[in-house]
Amino acid sequence: MSPWACPFPEKNLDVRHLLASTQNLGFPFSRLQRRDFGGNARTAFSILPLDGLYLLWTNQDPMSWFKRAKDNIQTRTEDKNNTPDGLWAKCPNCKKALQTKMLRKNAYVCMHCEHHLKIGSAEYFDLIFDEGHFEELNAQLVSADPLHFEDTKKYPDRIQASMAKSGLNDAIRTAVGPVHGNHIMVCAMDFSFIGGSMGSVVGEKISRAIDYCLEHRTPLLIISKSGGARMMEGALSLMQMAKISAKLALLGQASIPFISLLTDPTTGGVTASFAMQGDLNIAEPEALIGFAGPRVIKETIGRDLPEGFQRSEFLLEHGFLDFIVSRKELKDRLHLAFGMLMNEDEGEPA
């Protein structure tokens, strides 16, 4: 028999049974030692042949030694769902290997399970604009520290650290460029910058993008990917919801179309403002979309949340999305939808 297997599957086994059994197995008494393994006060017996430990028995289920004792051991933030570097990547959903070159060609969608990997503004601009041609606007805007906010870290230090880590100035980039020849404005959020949180810079960049759209009659796409408003700017962050909404009201009055694309995850103040104010609200498959986060809701109602709760498909079922779009078809669908909303003739019929 295997040296690690427990020969006594019955629970509450008496030591006498153990002794008898070990003898039956051919072990002499003298080799049986009682051992305390400390910690969880398990008592175990080991049978020590000359060349080391052969067999263990405990008055608890021995398999518990190999099981995780503590619940809620969570993955560290930096280990979660990283967009992969190098030649090979692993799909966070199906765990299969993906070749990064192929992944890019497949619009950062897993070739095996259609999982949409988390990507940032650079990838979206690359996917949406013709040959990656675009003009970035207001890249020079960076956060101030109006509240002199300090928690475990000073806010300016947090900003600096985020800038260094992400290579971005803030949680959104705005750019205008051609999509199948027609110019559109794209505001794409970056989750890698303080969780895609919305502060004054996000508000001002979107606000200026809308000004540009009003001036040039350019249709607007906002790609949301955010945990919500940024705490470190307090009420100023909250007011960015009001600011962007007020500007979008002007865009609506000018009959310039606005499509809101919700991606994984979109929660909090972003959901409760511009992400839900599109003429079309569309989403990538299986994106987490909600006002309150799942953890908060779970704590409030005191029970587990149903499968698929707050996912794109759930929102579509409840009537809050126009449609769900695969990232591979995103560009074509945007072109089509904007073209129809702008109510322009296609030109010569084919």
């Binding site: 601009f125 040959e131 990656g132 041609h133 675009f134 003009e135 970035e136 606007l137 890249a139 020079q140 805007l141 960076v142 956060s143 101030a144 520290d145 109006p146 100035n169 004054s200 810079v201 508000g203 001002e204 700017e233 100023l236 007011m239 960015q240 009001a242 600011k243």
Partner: peptide, 17 residues
């Protein structure tokens, strides 16, 4: 409403593929 600063670098960039 909002508090932000504007840095000198990167005014408007035209990106090539």
């Amino acid at each position: 409403m909002g508090a932000y600063t504007e840095v000198e670098a990167a005014p408007i960039m035209v990106k090539t593929p």
